[in-house]
């Protein structure tokens, strides 16, 4: 298990060095998108419209933050923990291939399609501790911008400048490894032992 510090824009070469189980910290630009912002970005790409931000080499965070706006109109992050990534499985592979984000951050893991796209394009999934909203907010140095506020504050495209954002446990790497899949296989093999404790079989 290595501890790796990454600075955006992250190159394909650097991200391919990271392995499942490593801990990564990101400095630079992390942007937020949930279901709606994914759909809109893909729609823009399809229509050939210009995106408000070039996503290549950046880190995408599945998160709907608590934010507040001061009198001057500037936004501040109060709390920003990860949301469940599996909802994005249905289009994340297309998204990664289209935009070449290098790190996807969330909780709960992702599945086959995302794992395959990450191997092909060169991207990793960083599991951020569920609920650790304060740690995330503290790593945000500045809200660089927000787009698509019409989607509502939790769904908008927030752009954060971060310093040592993490710890993120690499749960999918560029070699096709998926930690959540490995754990679920281990859990299956432990099932019998767990049954024995409560005195049941099968």
């Amino acid at each position: 298990m290595a501890i790796v510090k990454l600075q955006t824009p992250i190159s394909e070469e650097d991200v391919r060095k990271v392995k499942v189980g490593d801990i990564i910290y990101i400095s630079g630009t992390v942007y937020l998108s949930r279901d709606e912002a994914h759909l809109r970005a893909l729609e823009y790409a399809k229509e050939g419209k210009k995106l408000p931000l070039d996503f290549e080499g950046l880190a995408l965070f599945h998160c709907g933050p608590i934010v507040k706006q001061d009198e001057k109109g500037e936004w501040h992050v109060v709390a920003a923990g990860p949301t469940t990534s599996s909802r994005m499985e249905i289009f994340e592979d297309k998204y990664i291939e289209q935009f070449k984000v290098r790190v996807v951050i969330g909780k709960g893991g992702m599945f086959e399609r995302t794992t395959a796209a990450m191997k092909k394009v060169g991207a990793v999934y960083g599991a951020f501790t569920g609920g650790a909203a304060v740690l995330a907010a503290k790593a945000v140095k500045k809200v660089k911008g927000v787009e698509w506020l019409d989607l509502g504050t939790p769904e908008a495209l927030w752009i954060f400048e971060v310093e040592e954002f993490g710890p993120l446990t690499v749960a999918i790497d560029t070699h096709g490894n998926n930690l959540f899949k490995e754990v679920s296989q281990k859990v299956e093999s432990n099932r019998k032992k767990a049954y024995e404790i409560i005195g049941v079989s099968e």
């Binding site: 446990t169 754990v183 767990a194 404790i197 409560i198």
Partner: peptide, 17 residues
Amino acid sequence: KLKEAINTTGIGPMGLG
């Protein structure tokens, strides 16, 4: 017993083992 059995599964914090 239930606590022990659930912890024997190896799911772990956040399901990461």
